[in-house]
Amino acid sequence: MRTYVESLKRCFDKGEITSVKIQMMITLTDEEKEYILTEKDKEAISQNDK
């Protein structure tokens, strides 16, 4: 992935930007948006299962 996408992912994981902001970014492809948002969502789901 691009350095820009990796940076956005780190910011999202830290809670510095919201999923809404990521979804609204026209500079990102759908694949990049999914990459940024997926891991955090998986963590939330797995924590809810505990």
Rank of each mutant, 00 (worst) to 15 (best):
S46Y: 02
T3V: 10
F12T: 02
C11G: 03
E31G: 06
I17A: 09
K21S: 15
K40L: 11
M1E: 00
Y4R: 09
S46P: 02
K9C: 08
E39N: 13
A44L: 15
E32T: 11
L8A: 06
I45S: 08
K40H: 09
M1A: 11
M24T: 10
D49L: 03
Q47V: 07
K33R: 15
K21Y: 04
K42V: 08
D13S: 10
D30A: 13
S7F: 04
E32G: 05
E32H: 06
Q47K: 11
L28S: 12
I45G: 01
Y4E: 00
M25P: 03
S46I: 06
L37W: 00
K14G: 01
E6S: 14
L28M: 05
I36A: 05
C11S: 10
M24F: 09
V20S: 11
Y35M: 07
D13W: 01
N48R: 15
D49W: 05
E16N: 13
E39Y: 05
A44Q: 02
Q47D: 14
V20H: 04
K50F: 04
M25K: 15
M1K: 01
E34K: 12
K50R: 12
I26A: 11
I36N: 04
S19R: 15
D13V: 04
I22D: 15
T38I: 11
M25L: 13
V5E: 02
D49S: 10
I17H: 09
F12H: 13
K42H: 07
Q47L: 15
K33H: 08
N48A: 09
M25T: 11
A44E: 00
E16R: 13
D49F: 05
M1W: 03
S46R: 03
A44D: 00
S7K: 09
K14N: 04
F12Y: 15
T3Q: 08
S7N: 13
Y35C: 02
V20G: 08
E31S: 10
E39S: 11
S19W: 00
K9D: 08
V20E: 15
D49M: 04
E43Q: 05
R10S: 13
Q47E: 14
K33A: 03
K14H: 07
I26R: 15
M1Y: 04
D13Q: 07
K21P: 01
M1L: 15
T38P: 00
K40E: 03
F12I: 00
A44C: 08
F12R: 00
I26P: 05
V5S: 11
M24C: 13
V20D: 12
T18Y: 06
E31Q: 12
K42T: 05
I17K: 10
T27C: 05
T3L: 14
M25F: 11
V20Q: 12
K50A: 07
K33P: 07
Y35N: 12
Q23V: 00
R10A: 12
D30N: 14
S7V: 12
D30S: 14
V20F: 14
T3H: 07
L37E: 03
E39H: 12
Q23I: 01
R2D: 04
D49A: 05
E31V: 12
E16W: 11
S19G: 15
S46H: 04
T18F: 02
K14C: 07
E32I: 09
F12K: 00
K14R: 14
E43L: 01
K21G: 05
T29L: 06
I45F: 03
